[in-house]
Design a protein around this nucleic acid. Structure first.
Lengths: 401, 401
DNA sequence: GCATTATGTTAGTGAGTATTAGCGCCACGA
DNA sequence: TCGTGGCGCTAATACTCACTAACATAATGC
């Protein structure tokens, strides 16, 4: 009858880490409070500090052990064999697919929540994920010896993202099929033929640069416009919560409170930025629908417009869905817009591949989108000169075009 | 070889008390955590509660047993004899000097950490220290029958403070000499001739009151100024840790967090208050150096300016040296300022008394300062009408002027 | 030699506390 | 007249710390 304290499992720390991982994945680091994690594990907030020094420490622990688990799975499949066989690689894909479906947080966290870590932990993560990637690269080059090191790396990143896309789906999906599709598409990505890396057209490069530097334009952008641009940039590189109103104001050359002359709240400003992104995506979609002659061309058009848009704004929409700063309605609106956009892709894909139903289509489209979103957040990769064309090829391959 | 738990000494409680006393003395009650004390004794925090019910209980135990030990020493010297002889009194001074030097926490704690005790314990301390004081008063009046009861008490308090000043010194000082100086100055203080208690000039009293009530001024003080004033007052009466930001804000008429519009942290606010105090001391020093004609006059000037300043701010600087909220650099700065100020006194004193070296000078100056700091914290004493003049006389006597 | 007691330890709680952030008003100056 | 900086508030949150419950072991008495 006496409501004593909960049982004390031996592995409280592991339990807390598991709970935290899941919460971080579904809501994002900043949306999860210490007490939320504790409550989900059946203890009170301060108990956390028996096991972790920090909230940051929790994140680091969760992310690092996640990466380690992926690395272990990889090692189990291909060992330290310098030249893994095709069967071993196949085994690796199957193992990863299984892990991705069963423990969705594993393959997602270290890419999506990376930015919230301390620099020291981030460095450790980089080191460990580097090892993981090296193992994958080794395996891939054993199967495809013709690949250059850097190219193999790119393909491996994309394959890892493929598995990471599993975390996008919250609805229940038949496990076996899910695993099969993931492994299949990852295999396809690994065997993708990258486009000839044409020497970058210097004109195009220059145009890019000019487009991003708004202040040097003859026609000066309005304050409101500046704010949207700068806020978007800041949100992308540092995340919504890490950017203060003062930061945004300063970036646009005014004081923090003055931002409220132009937007009623920080959330509203975020919405404006999202609007901007969805508008661009929509405009791209329309242009495609006007010019495309068949489904394949349409999908390719969507791909290229998506890459173009995301190059500037990465995964802003995805972040917005997690933000509690947005009202329920606004979040639903964002979700709806994004779902509509995705279903357009799915419709086209299913028209091209009638053997797939919409569920499989959704899985596959999310793979393609996730590859773009992920790779665009990795500086090492965006530094590649032909990255846009390569991304388009990777996405097309993921879709099975 | 096996690192089992430490041996369990018979006298753990006494050991813990000793450790706690020393920690409380050097760092202050609030800067010392239960686990710090435990760690210093080689156990973990909760073990404390096998011996003491409370942290407050520890403090009470430590303080009360300290007072008791002083009382015992006194009794050993003068017994219950209603008219102790001059030799017995002399013996008492020697015993106290020895105790003060060897166990510096004894004579300091019950005066400096009093305020952190529970009211009930404080009452007990008052009762016990009252007895101690009564014994001293009895002894003094046996030697100086001409003294009024209240005056004798004042002198005894000052003498006890003299011994208490030993806790100010952390550097090693030759024991015998230290004891000799302490006993000598305490004897001088006990034989001090207090100034005729002139009926208090009502004008002066009125000016004091007006000076402290800033809000009734025509020229209203700025928020920042108000905060410094109010925070200083609160810190003095309740101590740094017992004052919350909300309290400070409320005292200045704003909310707690709004204080951060004016000061970046609580520590910064404390520093501002300290600055204020050191500035006043420095201004006093300068005025003295401009007007004083010889060393004696200079010292007297310093004394009077010190009493004036400390009347409003008691021992704020001393507290600051213990605060962990301050950075190492800030604490060092405070220490430096205070050391400079003290060395000015020492220089003057040594010029007047060439037979003393600087070390003796430092001991003596600290005696004088401690008398002021201590007595100003005792309401019974500050209530005396002529207290300022009396304090100045006591300090001058302590210095040997 | 063995139960009992005194003393420790580990994991947890509850009540704060400093600090941050978003938000907004108002007087002032270009 | 609009934009702005100074100053203010409320809400929330990570973290601290004294203290407790349950289990564990050393010391002790019979």
């Amino acid at each position: 009858m006496s409501r004593t304290t909960a049982a004390r499992p031996r592995n409280r720390k592991a339990q807390l880490a598991a709970v935290a991982a899941e919460l971080f994945r579904t809501h994002g680091y900043h949306e999860v409070g210490i007490s939320d994690i504790a409550a989900a594990a059946g203890v009170t907030g301060p108990a956390i500090y028996r096991h972790f020094t920090d909230k940051q420490d929790m994140l680091a622990h969760v992310v690092l052990s996640g990466v380690d688990e992926l690395a272990e799975a990889t090692n189990r499949a291909i060992g330290t064999d310098p030249h893994p066989s095709a069967e071993q690689v196949e085994d690796m894909l199957a193992t990863m697919a299984k892990l991705s479906v069963e423990r969705r947080e594993l393959t997602a966290l270290w890419r999506t929540q990376r930015r919230h870590m301390r620099e020291s932990d981030r460095a450790a993560t980089r080191r460990r994920s580097r090892e993981l990637l090296d193992n994958w690269t080794r395996a891939l080059r054993a199967v495809r010896p013709e690949l250059a090191e850097a190219d193999a790396e790119l393909l491996c990143w994309a394959a890892l993202s493929t598995f990471g896309s599993a975390s996008m789906h919250s609805t229940r999906i038949a496990k076996r099929r899910f695993e099969r599709v993931l492994a299949e598409r990852a295999r396809a990505v690994l065997h993708c033929t990258l486009p000839e890396s044409a020497p970058p057209a210097p004109g195009a490069q220059a145009r890019d640069t000019a487009a991003e530097v708004t202040e040097s334009q003859v026609l000066r952008a309005s304050r409101r416009e500046q704010l949207i641009t700068e806020a978007g940039r800041l949100f992308q590189v540092r995340g919504f919560h890490e950017v203060s109103m003062d930061d945004i104001g300063a970036a646009a050359g005014i004081s923090g409170p003055s931002v409220y002359r132009h937007f009623p709240s920080k959330a509203a400003l975020f919405l404006a930025v999202s609007q901007r992104v969805t508008d661009r995506l929509e405009r791209g979609r329309q242009r495609v629908s006007e010019t495309a002659t068949d489904e394949t061309a349409a999908l390719r058009g969507l791909i290229s417009s998506y890459v173009e848009t995301m190059f500037a704004h990465a995964d802003l929409l995805g972040v917005g869905q997690q933000m509690s700063a947005l009202s329920e309605g606004e979040r639903a609106e964002l979700r709806r817009v994004q779902r509509d956009y995705v279903s357009e892709w799915v419709r086209l894909l299913c028209a091209l591949q009638p053997e797939r139903d919409t569920q499989e289509g959704r899985i596959i489209v999310h793979i393609a989108l996730t590859i773009a979103n992920d790779l665009l957040r990795t500086r090492r990769i965006t530094a590649r000169p032909g990255i846009r064309a390569e991304l388009e090829t990777l996405m097309a391959t993921a879709l099975g075009l």
